[in-house]
Design a protein around this nucleic acid. Sequence first.
RNA 1: GGGCGAUUAGCUCAGUGGUAGAGCGCAUCGUUCACAUCGAUGAUGUCGCAGGUUCAAAUCCUGCAUCGCCCA
Length: 1040
Amino acid sequence: MTMDKTFDAAQAEPRIYAKWEEAGAFKAGANASRSETFCVMIPPPNVTGALHVGHAFNNTVQDMLVRWHRMRGFDTLWQPGQDHAGIATQLMVEKELAKTGQPKRIELGREKFLEKVWDWKGQYGSTIITQLKRLGASADWSRNAFTMAGAPGDPRTGHENSANFHDAVIKVFVDMYEKGLIYRGKRLVNWDPHFETAISDLEVENIEVAGHMWHFKYPLAGGETYTYIERDEDGNITLEEERDYISIATTRPETMLGDGAVAVHPSDERYAPIVGKLCEIPVGPKELRRLIPIITDQYPDKNFGSGAVKITGAHDFNDYQVAKRNEIPLYRLMDTKGAMRDDGASYATCAARAMEISKGAGFYEAEIDSLNLVPDELRGLDRFEAREAVIAQITRDGLAVMIPDPNPEEGTDPQMIPYVENKPIMQPFGDRSKVVIEPMLTDQWFVDAEKIVGPALDAVRNGETKIMPEAGEKTYFHWLENIEPWCISRQLWWGHQIPVWYGLDLEAPDFRDDEGDGAIDLVEMGRLLVETRMVHRDDRYHCAPDIDGVTGYFKAGIANLPTPLNAARIVEVEDRHAAIEALASTLAQYAMTEDPTQLIYPIWRDADVLDTWFSSGLWPIGTLGWPEDTAEMAKYFPGDVLVTGFDILFFWVARMMMMQLAVTDQVPFHTVYLHQLVRDEKGKKMSKTTGNVIDPLEIIDTYGADALRFTNAAMAAMGGVLKLSEDRIKGYRNFGTKIWNATRFAEMNGVFEGPVVTAPPQPEHTVNRWIIGETAKIRELVDEAFESYRFNDAALGLYGFVWGKVCDWYVEFAKPLFDGEHAEETRATMRWVLDQCYILLHPIMPFITEELWDLTAPQGDRAKLLVHTDWPSYRASDLVDEAADREMNWVIDLIEAIRSSRTQMGVPVGLKLPMVLAEADDAARTAMARNEALIFKLARIESLTEAPIPKGAISLPAQGALFGLPLEGVIDIGKEKARLEKALGKMEKEIGGMKGRLNNPKFIANADPEVVVETRENLARAEEEAEKVRAAVTRLAALG
RNA sequence: GGGCGAUUAGCUCAGUGGUAGAGCGCAUCGUUCACAUCGAUGAUGUCGCAGGUUCAAAUCCUGCAUCGCCCA
């Protein structure tokens, strides 16, 4: 066997991964040797996703945990899969259709379009899985799950064995609906005008943009005036004037049309005189301007803007709350595309009705939504065009607040100009559509989160589930304690369609049965349809897993209708519009035939689908086959650890907790490991626009997956910021090369010629005894680090051990031993130690270690692949030989001292020096005698004689000994003296500190006794050494 | 504005009360004998500032400053 000089990751990694897969190494339960299970659910990446550095980090962490447990014999399942990513996928497919010149989504229709989506999923949906494999992820791919598995039309491509997620999602929806945990309602939601759907908070990015704040006058009704007074901090009047208006500042003038009130803080004395009065919205046809009340609410900030806030409940989340509290009507101004409404009655009609309402007339929510308060000339305009028009109108009417131009033209009096502040404002954008998100009042489905939040809070409070780092728990509590209803409906086609059917409300309270015969005649039927306006009333709806489930409900619902309507057949139609047509046509037909068996009652299914997060909220059980009673569910649920980004703590983790508890009464996992976003080396978010995106696949191509994984592990300090730097990756690639070459050295020295060494050897030589103890220490450190999720400690500990102990010292120490009486045991020890390095490094660097595992057993006598090799459990207390430890540290210190003085004195590297031993106690003498060969070799010493330190020699104090390097004529006395004095200064400072402490009776009395003893020992050692240095300085002084 | 967090070597970061650390970078030296993706050696710190608790503070507490993130 001749090893190459480096590990060829690009060539080896695919081969090694294939070997694992062929061996079924990642299958659930593979290598299990005990009954405990270990189950990790992958946070499902989007089916549209491609691997980015965040995935790479997240999955490295999971893989380390999984591999570590699998090697320790746990019955391990790492459950992979993907979510169906409603918007993203739909967008992707629409783009694809456009690119290939196919009909558009709407043209295709729902069913055909969904076929296209399934085709797309089959063709491109497994991209990220292939990429995760390149990272070395050891998930059980045979169980790959998909959140749309089992939905109508699923051809089962790429998730052949996935549990039926659709059934699980629908069952949970129906159950929660029946328990009253899910309801339908009109609420303010984040609306994406591009995709024309509600979206979740998670899909909204708040970005600071340059914005403007316009200041407008809202005239008081009836020309009323009041004295407006402003005071400074001491209460002195700074401004006093009569005003016939109230000044409002807004960043969104176009929403003024929907204002329902102006609010001021109850303690704001400036506006106290006009609270309760009406003011006029300064836009729209003059004769039809609406009046709105001036109210008080806690929300306005007295110090912000003018202190008065316009309340547009249907287009702003804060205003919505104020409006709700104060029963202010919510006027919707825009359509689904974000354009000003162009529907309903004329502005004159709507505004008149709105006026009645603000003067106290009663109103219904549904009626309010039908009022279109957009002036006729603004109807149909895009919201941003409408903004400009509104500003222009107000300014033209002289109702903008005016100020003197701060930058007047040279030599002229400043002109008065409208007061517009330029200021940065936070604006919500759709993360995929990139358009400004509009708060919009629409009918949506909600989970009444407040009702299911309790158990999720308790589970974390009582420690049943632990969130790490702990700061995550605070955030979790804060969010859950203030939980809002969760909007789960989306106006999309790709997703789980909501299992709710609607029917027209045919119950007519004012319907008269002329004959009182309980049967309906044609006259009555005509009146029913035309006069009672039933099609304008709210619909009836029922929820069930399928249409058969709701048929009964609807039958019962029409049972009380007059004959023959009460016997109509329930038939599903496309939508509400089709239902009205169908009903009209069936009634018309009945009028002709009078055949009651032909009468139908049309129902239609809710067109909306469920939020992707609703289905991924069920990930921990859905992937295991729930609601079926599967073996996997019994074995692996509840799972163990969830590894995910801090950013989805609310959106996913908290919801999973709530939903699993609501459905199974059990927590889905006992530990949540949260990590930060992966940033670039300067800590900036990676983005295509900034151009600082690091592609993990390019990194893998260049440096290998192990280097990227090791970097991820080394960065993974609990809660730490993750800054990925290519230099660091390169450094860890070099680390791989280092252990590769240590192996190569061992191979050249015949270490792998015999059979493999499985148990810790019991060698005689100190060097070998020492490294075995060091190995045991690092094994304990690695286990403790993994146990407590301190992956950085595991990685850096191994780095220091392999490079700093094994390569820098043990390999060097071993060189002289290969020829002597300890050759045999040294080979055995080195072989064992290297094996331990491969094993302990395997969870972090699986590829190179598996390769080395194979290469270092040329006889083919490995019991198993490394991926399944038993994790060691030997202990430092059994394997550390204290004496060997002391001795080797003494040797290392001495060699370093000699090397240091040589370099500083400018002794040529090649020159071998004689050395004198001036003083030595027994321990030092023995240590010297036993390790002379390697000290000579590593410090380039040619001889050792016992003699006093000669003149002009460098003194080298060691524990229990004093050495000298005669360098008369070579050393620069001044330089050496300076070096010694510097060292002495440092020592004396330390000694001073220790003496100070030991002289303090309080220290002796209060400090931990161990600390006192330790300090005494350290002091003694330091004083001994300082004494030697002082003597050396004296000798040097005598010389000079 | 509210909440959470950070501030340690030139850079990136570890360090949960007991002698300030790592990697990278930098400087000097070194290629027969595992590795130049390497080796040897070295320089670099008022641990953000000010108080407090303690025998002892980078570490705990308080305030301040600066910078992040989340929410409004």
